[in-house]
Write a protein that binds this DNA or RNA. Structure first.
Lengths: 181, 181
DNA sequence: GCCTTCATGTAATGAGTTACATGATTCT
DNA sequence: AGAATCATGTAACTCATTACATGAAGGC
């Protein structure tokens, strides 16, 4: 089965929280700065249809009267698929080019809670450290030859990853304290 | 005229540095961590053709003998388009959802050098500060209600932007020193 | 002669963007 | 009655991804 888009998982996750209609999901995307997904109907309604075709979500009883609304809820199959997506170990590639997806998974993992959160954060931490090592090595070899702008852009990347490394250390701390309570 | 993809501008910028063939550009993408663009032929060759159709680049004399190679160089029209792309003032949207594109522009601006770099960085700084303000306001209103994972993910974002704010301040410092030399 | 690398391409597929279309409902 | 909002959808377009195809040049 072909993997679905990030948007599809974001929708699926939100439907776990509460069965909703496409319009509600659009409003969520438009009003929270958490994940910057598109709130355009041309993205959301087709994605919902794909999820429905896959039997990951299903429309629950539509209202007989009032506004026309199609409220979707995850199926058991959808719940399993979502749990599997959440449970994947963070990879180097996730850290390097899909940080936003990692954070999306984290946001949903928090609702689940428990030790899975810690495992996830530890995975992020180790991949992050490894990648920072690669970046330092690259800098040592190439920084001198780079034009000013390129060097600055490179540094921006490094600083970003360093900040995330500090963040993940603090996050691990916080989850430990949270569990002790 | 419809705006072209980021990849197209990346290619155009690299061709400014030196006329090259698609194969060379692929190797650049595969070997530098600067911008993580795709090195797949299915992305690069069509993008080059689009640039050629637009008369932003043109193939320079192909070698009579030896390997089949199509070396492209930017045209005057292409240089103007690229300069215009580089010169755009950074917007809030750039900072929030297209940081990588901003850094790509920065990397190419460095080659140009001069006061444009400073102007650019100052623009980034002010948009960044404004967005950080928005994020703080959001946290004040919503952080208490967010589940642990969501709060952590949100913090990751904030920390990332804060790191970039520190970075841009230092970058401005460095360009000032660079110019004094 | 054979394998590797050079070098360019195409086809199928999936997905997002913008813009438009369409009605129903609620507010004033 | 008219406007705004609710709510869902479609169409045209652009683009990237993966995988496959092709052939020439050079090293051994």
């Amino acid at each position: 089965m072909t993997p679905d888009s990030t948007l599809a998982y974001a929708l699926l996750g939100l439907l776990h929280g509460a069965p909703q209609a496409g319009y509600d999901l659009r409003k969520t995307f438009a009003s929270t700065p958490l994940a910057h997904f598109s709130d355009s109907p041309g993205a959301i309604y087709p994605a919902l249809r794909r999820l429905a075709r896959r039997r990951w979500v299903a429309a629950v009883a539509a209202p007989r009267s009032g506004r026309r609304r199609k409220v979707f809820a995850p199926t058991d199959l959808g719940r399993r698929a979502f749990a599997q997506w959440l449970g994947q170990a963070p990879t180097r590639d996730d850290v390097v080019r899909a940080w936003d997806v990692l954070m999306l998974r984290l946001a949903f993992l928090g609702a689940v809670g428990g030790p899975r959160l810690t495992v996830f954060l530890r995975g992020v931490e180790s991949e992050l450290r490894a990648y920072l090592g690669e970046l330092e090595a690259y800098r040592a070899g190439h920084a001198a030859k780079m034009p000013l702008g390129a060097r600055l852009a490179f540094d921006s990347g490094v600083e970003g990853y360093r900040a995330q490394a500090r963040w993940v250390a603090r996050a691990l701390d916080r989850t430990r304290r949270e569990r002790r309570k």
